[in-house]
Nucleic acid binder design. Structure first.
Lengths: 337, 337
DNA sequence: TTGTACGCGTTATCAT
DNA sequence: ATGATAACGCGTACAA
């Protein structure tokens, strides 16, 4: 003898004097009902305080109106920019966002994806395209549409940017200013294909210019301001100190600027510093940061758009690359020599 | 004749030669089974690639292992810090996070909460305690446990800080340095009780010291670096220019510093600037920002802890206030006069 | 320790 | 335009 706390559709149907089926249609396909029946059902629903139960709906229909997103961390201005836009776009389409983060751990990503899938998400969004086969098989077997963000495996849809190009662009910019000794601070490359690509981009651009990046001129740090400070300290110790520094994310570059500022090293007088991302803050640090603009918000909206069409139409594993461009500000200057 | 793509528990039971009930127990209460039956079921499950369907599980049990969070925006270092920790804590307890944001719009918050509730969340987390009755009634009637973050309505559980005190603390700190003309840049107060409290705290502290804050010395801006810059510009125009500025969030204070820097106004030489939040960045801007430390990560973990105990134990609408403290850095200095 | 059988609230198919 | 009814996949008394 359990008391039902919530009113069900059956109750509504009863109250309105119609069948369950009719009551259901009143919500999903109101156009199929006669105006007065529709009205009666609606009245009944509000009268007894009915609230749609999407769980039951999901079970019966196989659609959950839910999209899962698996990201490395919520705690990053880049991802939160993107997430915020995804949330907005999804809500507008009456979808709900489920998020899971894994802090750059492949096993954690697998677990997160599995949980999301078990919750019946209609689509799953992943960051990057590099992950264990097991994870790919998991989503593959579930038959759930998948969209990758930032960069991705060619077999699946992706909305992102050319991270390799981003790396090349900063490197070339610095070289065009006359810099030859360039230090690079990246995030940890191991489980991060975005970072790997950016770094590769830097290296190849330098090689094309006949330069090579000595191993000592590259350091991997955490993707944060403190990471940038540490990386900067390390590179400043080099005997042939670099005349320019690249942080492969803005936070790192900003940290490098902070470190130089606190050491009385003038940026860009003594050393030029550039980043990649163009987070909002970068325009406001001093000196303002030269960087490569990555349209993180648009990645969010476009990803959602792709996902919704993937769910609706047929599967096209299209890759869309959003445009990027250098944003020349005040943290870089020509090498005076 | 519909083909079932996924293996169900029934299939597992069949494969293992046990009943559906036994198969179900193998997952939820393995201790009730004999070791060998358990093993048989598990083998069968992996053999046919069974994956738990939490949707069906939710419908049958009434528990979704899901917590909904309604926040103003994902796009803020404070909230994403908190969210990241919530995600971590929830995942550890096998809960899934559903997030919805509403960009400081009460109607949007209502809609977000309603959708979350319709998805059967086991608990719902809200930010702040000020919202239309309709929203409160919505969650009240759903019978879903609710925890507020940052600050809250006394009738419901809350994990937060004393925002009023935070405001008072910065104001007193500045006054202790000799400042009497203090300008205040807040976010928009209308739908933001955290901001209102902080501002009230500033005002009362000043009144206690025999000072009053002229209306012109307060400006409401967006909660962002650009907002801080604009607010700063406005306050710098005053004929009796303030000798100190309070940004009621760090981003605003950082914007104010940036504005002063770019105008050649020395901080803290010409003007002192302080914030509230202590986001990671604040230690790294130059000059580093004096601010009030708000334990945003702990708010996340504690909120989750409260929520889980609320779901399990009986309902206690306890309010927990986390400690805050001034972090004295280099953006503030004694008034030299 | 294991099995039987019903219910969860909705959607969808087939009649009428 | 509306109704009857069978899934959907699992949890859980209750029975054995």
């Amino acid at each position: 003898m359990r008391r039902r706390s919530k009113a069900s559709l059956t109750d509504v149907a009863h109250e309105a004097g119609v069948s369950l089926a009719t009551a259901s249609r009143a919500l999903s396909q109101p156009e199929l009902l006669r105006a007065d029946t529709l009205e009666r059902v609606r009245r009944a629903a509000t009268k007894i305080g009915y609230r749609h139960d999407r769980v039951a709906s999901t079970l019966a229909s196989g659609r959950s109106s839910t999209i899962g997103v698996v990201i490395p961390t919520l705690n990053s201005p880049i991802f939160s920019d993107t997430l915020q836009e995804m949330q907005r776009a999804l809500a507008a389409a009456d979808y709900q966002l489920l998020v899971a983060s894994h802090e750059y751990d492949p096993a954690g990503e697998f677990a997160a994806a599995e949980k999301l899938l078990s919750h019946g998400v209609d689509g799953i969004v992943l960051v990057g395209g590099s992950r264990p086969d097991a994870t790919w098989q998991l989503v593959e077997r579930s038959g759930t549409p998948v969209v990758q963000m930032w960069c991705g495996h060619p077999d699946y849809a992706c909305v992102g940017v050319d991270n390799f190009a981003a790396g090349s662009i900063v490197a070339r910019h610095l070289m065009s200013l006359g810099h030859r000794r360039i230090g690079v601070i990246t995030g940890h490359l191991r489980h991060n294909d975005r970072q790997r690509e950016r770094f590769r981009g830097v290296c190849e651009a330098m090689e094309e210019a006949g330069l090579t990046l000595p191993a000592a001129y590259h350091t991997e740090q955490s993707l944060s301001v403190p990471g940038g400070r540490i990386g900067c300290s390390i590179l400043l110790e080099l005997t042939d100190r670099p005349t320019a520094l690249i942080g492969t994310v803005d936070f790192i570059a900003i940290g490098a600027i902070a470190e130089c500022n606190s050491r009385g090293i003038s940026v860009p007088g003594d050393i030029s510093i550039a980043g990649i991302d163009d987070i909002e803050l970068s325009a406001h640090v001093s000196p303002s940061l030269t960087t490569v603009h990555i349209p993180s918000r648009r990645i969010g909206t476009e990803t959602v758009a792709r996902m919704l069409s993937l769910i609706k139409d047929e599967r096209r594993k299209e890759h869309v690359l959003l445009p990027i461009e250098i944003v020349d500000r005040h943290s870089t200057a020509a090498l005076n020599r």
